[in-house]
């Protein structure tokens, strides 16, 4: 592509400005978190004596171990189960293409546009009726259901892209549907599955509304849902509040940086291909 010089320079400047603007809020949280805990910090100023111990204090007073454990429990159930259900259904809709599959697909698509807020009130009473209100299951069970539209549509998009000749060849060799699914389809679905896994991890880890409403004890929530508890706990200390918020952010950034390549690639394929 032929681009002239001034365009390149202006472009770079604009980009750098945007990047700085993107990072400022995070840097600002860090600078605030490092001020002495009893101070009311002002703006974005690097502290003379960074108080890294604030993170330790925030970690302890915020019961972060307990919160992370609770979050992890929710993630460890929600993500694998959602992956399993959506892979099976995606395979059925994308590869087996059974009769009525189109109907199922449309039925699921309707669910894509339903905001959680529209369901939260009835979900509350439903979870109460099941008897799991105020336990982690109150978030786990609804989340699996709420993730189904996106996850199934996502996996279906993958399975549609797999050449049907592969399945036919397997069936000619006498493989059952289940064998074919395990030996041929699953290995091929790896990239799509791992991207979906990362997405589901982030969504579950960051989930706020469901835990706030469905689990009354903040220490049994997801870490994001417990942020309201942090706000109460550290309300008089801006440094500790920011330290607490950063502690919650860090795992998501780590997961993202580690997996970003396959994540962005698969996200793009999935969303655009369909």
């Amino acid at each position: 592509m032929i681009v002239n010089k001034s365009e390149v320079v202006i472009g770079r400047i604009v980009l750098v400005i945007v990047l700085v603007l993107t990072l400022i809020p995070l840097a600002n949280m860090l600078s605030a978190a490092l001020q002495p805990a009893g101070d009311n910090p002002t703006g974005l100023t690097w502290p003379a004596h960074p108080q890294w111990s604030n993170f330790v204090t925030a970690f302890d007073t915020g019961h972060v171990w307990q919160l992370m454990g609770s979050s992890l429990l929710i993630v460890v159930v929600v993500v694998p189960v959602s992956l399993l259900f959506s892979t099976l259904a995606g395979y059925a809709l994308g590869n087996l293409r059974m009769r009525g599959g189109r109907f199922v697909f449309i039925f699921l698509i309707l669910g894509l546009t339903i905001p959680f807020e529209a369901l939260i009130i009835p979900l509350y009473y439903q979870v109460q009726a099941i008897g799991v209100l105020n336990t982690q299951w109150a978030v786990i069970l609804p989340l699996i259901g709420l993730y189904m539209p996106f996850s199934v549509v996502w996996m279906r998009a993958h399975f549609i892209g797999v050449p049907r000749e592969l399945s036919e060849a397997a069936r000619v060799d006498g493989a059952t549907t289940l064998q074919e699914f395990r030996r041929i389809q699953l290995p091929l679905a790896r990239p799509a599955l791992s991207a979906l896994a990362i997405l589901l991890f982030l969504w579950t880890w960051n989930q706020f509304l469901l835990p706030v409403v469905l689990i009354s004890d903040p220490l049994s929530r997801t870490v994001a849902g417990a942020l309201t508890f942090f706000q109460g706990q550290y309300s008089s200390s801006i440094p500790l509040l920011n330290a607490g918020a950063l502690i919650i952010i860090v795992p998501t950034i780590v997961v993202f940086i580690v997996f970003q390549r396959q994540f962005i690639r698969a996200l793009l394929q999935g969303a655009v291909k369909g």
């Binding site: 399993l84 087996l96 059974m98 259901g145 549907t177």
Partner: peptide, 28 residues
């Protein structure tokens, strides 16, 4: 057979979806 297996495969997802999206939508 494909149809039967297909519906079996789709069943867990559909059940979860109906139980925690469609059902609350209707009760709402």
């Amino acid at each position: 057979r494909g149809t039967l297996v297909g519906w079996l495969f789709a069943a867990p997802a559909l059940i979860a979806y109906c139980a925690f999206v469609i059902y609350p939508l209707l009760t709402g």
